[in-house]
Each structure stands twice: as structure tokens, then as C-alpha cells.
Write a protein that binds this DNA or RNA. Sequence first.
RNA 1: CGGGGCGUAGCGCAGUCUGGUAGCGCACUCGCUUUGGGAGCGAGAGGUCCCCGGUUCAAAUCCGGGCGCCCCGACCA
Length: 563
Amino acid sequence: MTRLSSYLLPTEKEAPADAEALSHKLLVRAGLVRQMGAGLWTWLPAGWRVQRRIEAILREEMNRIGAHEMLMPLIQPAELWKRTGRYAIEELFKLQDRRGAELVLALTHEEAVTSHVAQVVRSYRDLPLILYHLQVKGRDEARPRAGVLRTREFVMKDSYSFDRDQDGLEASYARHIEAYDRIFDRTGLRWYRVAGDVGQMGGSGAHEYMAPCAAGENEVALASGYAANVEVASATAQPVELDERRDAPQEVATPNAKTVAEVAGLLGLPTGALLKAFPVLTEERGMILVLLRGDHRLNEIKLGAALGGAWRAASEAEIAEQIGPAGYIGPVGLDGRLPILLDDGAAPGAYVTGANRSDTHLRGVEPGRDFVFEQGDVRNVEVGDLVDGHPIEIEPAIEVGNIFQLGTRYSTVLGANYLDEQGKEQPIWMGSYGIGPARIAAAAVEQYADHAGISWPAAIAPFMVHLVVLGKPGSVERELADSLYETLIDGGIDVVYDDRDLGAGQKFADAELLGAPVRLTLGRRAAESGEVEVQLRRGSEARPSISLASTLADVEKLCSELA
RNA sequence: CGGGGCGUAGCGCAGUCUGGUAGCGCACUCGCUUUGGGAGCGAGAGGUCCCCGGUUCAAAUCCGGGCGCCCCGACCA
């Protein structure tokens, strides 16, 4: 029973003043969510219906690949998290019970599932296994933002795979790709599966599912046949005009010119003809000089991968001590003293570099001839760089799902082992896989909204049909609409009935805000002609009217066409 | 965690500089009219002006402290 006269759908003409993201504004205006605190949101009835529909798709597709649903607690003993080393995470909510026992609010459930599996799984015969649940996560975000997109508490579908070895893990991973591809297709979102950063969790493979939208926090590099998070994207740099070649590097006075732009301007060269130098400190190899083409930007994640460990930028004092004055440092003359890592984006040729002396640069410096170097891909890709000959574009996107090969990181620490055929104890190989239903809902709003409001993909709409009656209580129109509503409900149609005593304009405006794919209008015209008017939300497309005598069949047909 | 902004009715805001006991639009209630794209007239209800302290005859307004929320950045397992 969803009659708006007795439903909680607090629509607003104006968005809250502090809302910035489109999905934030519209979800609030359409009466789907309400804020309780920073990053804390209530899903009102219509909004919750959206989430439930998304969850239904998740359950169907997870079950299809043989995953089993369960439920694990949000509140967990801190001890477990201390064992895996994740207790130190700042985002982890920590609390105590009345006796002072330490507890946490789980940010994901690796510790929980793994500790159960460790107790229960003994033999290779018990594997493989995929377990999942839909549960609230707690995260003490440094900065919640964009309405429902980055919150401190949210429902997540997280699944975990348990296999005998890496091959098994890769198979489970592949099944998740299958399931996730189907899930995101079914939601009706525009999405990409992109290569992701394996991050500090370690592991061998990771993909992210990205839904492009303006409010997205990530950037995705896209080319024909290629999609990657810019954190890890890799492409061929666009060529740039370099310095003139000469027999040897030549000093040039560059007083007070410290930045790439200043030096390039002074010498009349494009910034790409310079090599900029980033001295970094690593634990294993000490200081390393990283060189990038002047117009390129360092990618810290890729640098971490290239260096194979933690690093930090060197301080000005450290630079002065080991190389020269900041702003004028370069690779020439450092041979043997410091390893030099040259980014792949710098093609062979002559460059301008610092001379390791104040107010002085060198022209005509050629990597290889004038200094020895190692090579690596440590820069951010730029719009127009090529992948297999295709130029890339960069789009903002929101991460709606991720899949991750964990390996044995958790199983080893938590003792999740099994006995193989030889009776030998082996660690279980794990994967973890997440999807955020709220982000799917928000991304759908972002991707399909128009000037009038939300336009839901049919698969996740709170209602398939929005029935608007125009006519006072007691009128013929009302009687017809009441009985049409009953007919549709009995026929299993997801319908919301606007039976409020409001003007036509207000009802239409609310219908457009809420965004059900189909609007049926029953007013005086219908009472006279015996036909209900049909309009699709997407594009405000008018469809032929439907006879009151055959509405159920025709609406069913329309719905299946849209699904 | 750094920088910026804001906190007055359900929502959007004015009033704060220059202290005098709170107002506008929308929404809400009642009556009449109206009724196919956010109606009209009339009458109403609704506020610890974020909190605590101080100054003052008097504080939404000035001073001190705190809390909350938003945006940019850092961060984001």
C-alpha cells in the first residue's frame, strides 16, 4: 500500500543550503534520505526501497556464483584487529563496553570471516568457499562528503572467497568478475571495470568498478579498449619539443628561476623540455633522485610500486646536504653517488636540468650520455596520452565496487589453514569483494537526473509506476483511480499512488522529482475517454494512452519493455 | 589534520556591522473560492536565535570558550 496521502515522502522545493553534489540535493529533495549528522544518513521509506532493490540484485547474482549469505556483527572485539595489525587504522571506530573491554566497529569483515573459517575449515575438502553478507560498516572518515557518497556508516555487500591455492583464488576472483559485471549491467548504471591499486593491503590483483559521474572522487583514464584508475594508469606520453642537442651539457645562468615554468619561460622552451628532479628517501636504498619531464606530474602510488617500498620526499635540508640547492638540482655529476630513476615519459633527447649550483641550469643534458639511470613508469597520465594508439580521456567517477586478491595475508595471521591431500598444513588463499548499494543509488541519480529531478533506471527505481489522480476526493476520477490502483497492486506492479488533495502542478512536480520510470495520469480527460495517459520519465516521452479496460496487461507490457 | 565558510520556524533566507526583546518566502492548520503544470483571499499555529559564560538597565546582535555542519586540500585497507 503506497498511497502518498499516508506515506512519508517529505519532498522539498529547495535543496539544503549545504548540499553540493547533485545526488545529495536530489535524494534529499525527493524525500529519499535525511541527514542525522556528518556522514550519517537515514534512508526514508522510498529511499530504502531503492536500496532494497539493489540488494535484491546483489543477492541474486552472488547466489548465482555459489556464494552463501550470512551475517556477522558490526561490533567486534579489538583483539582480532590487533592481531591483523589493523587496529592502528585511524578510520577504525574504537569503543569500550561498560567493563572497559575494547571493541571496534568493523570497517570490513576480513577479521570476522577469517577467524570463523579458521575454526571451522580443516580440510581441502571444505574448499573452495564463498561467503557474503550485507551489513553496516563503520568508518571514522576524516571528511565525510557529497551527501551519501562518503559516509561514516553505510551498508556494504562484502564477500570473501577461500581457496586452496592461488589458482583457486584466481578462479574465485573470475567468478566475482562475472557476478559483478552482471550486477552493474542490471543496475542500469554506466560503469567501467578498471585496474586498481593493490594498496597497503598487499596482494596480487585488484579491480574497481567505477560509475562515471560529476561528484565522483576518483579519476578514470579511458581509451578505446582501456580503462584504469589514474592512480595506476599507464600510457605513452605525447611528444614534446626538446632542447637542441649539443656535444656536452652547457651551463646557463638562470637567476631566481626555480620552478619549471620560470626556467622554461626564461629559456623560451616548453616546460616538457625540462627534467624536474624529485629527491626521495627510501629505507633500503637511501636517497633516490626521481626525474620527470617538466610538464608531467609524479604519481605517488606508481612511484611506491616502482620503488618497491615506502618512501618520502626529501626535505630541503637533506637535498642541500646530498645534492645541491633546492630549485637547481639535477642528475649530472651524481653518477655513482645516488641512484637516478628516470620516468618512461621522458623520451631520449636533450633536456634542461638543474646544475646543482644556485642560479644555474644545464642545457643539452642527455640521459644515458650525461648520467646513468634506471627507468620506471612513475608519472600521472595526461589527457591525450596514447594507449595502443588511442588517446585517453579522464573522467571523474565514483567507486561502486571493488574486488581484491588478498592472498594469505589474513589467513596466515589468523591461522586459517587446511590440510591438503598430503596431510600437510597450508594457508587458505583469500579474496575480498565489496559493493556499496548507497553509492549505486547516488551514482544512478547523478547519471540520469535532469532539470526536473531524478530519473531512475527501471531496475532500481523505488516505484515502477507513479499513478497521479487529478480530481477532488469523491469525484469520478478518484473512483476510477482508486480501482485502477487496486488493479495494479493486485497485478504485482510496483506502484505509488498520489491520492493527495493537491494541485496538478504539485503532483506532477513531485512525480518528476521522485523519478519513477512510468507516470500514469488519470484526470477528467480519462474519465471522459476511458483512457489513462502514459508518460515515461526518461525524456518526458509521451506514450499512447491505455484503456482503463486493459490497463494491467498494457502496464505490464510497458514495464517489461523498460526493464 | 591544514585552509575557508556557516549555525535565526520543516526548507530557503533577512536581521548581527550600529544592542532595545524576532521577521520574509515556501511548507503547515482552519474557512471560502479555485482545480490538467508548484492557485487566490481571509484567519492562524509554529522559535532554548547551536551551547555555556561574560559585558550591559537591556544581547540573535558585543567579548571569551565550546559544539555542530558544509566546502577545498591531506587522507580514504
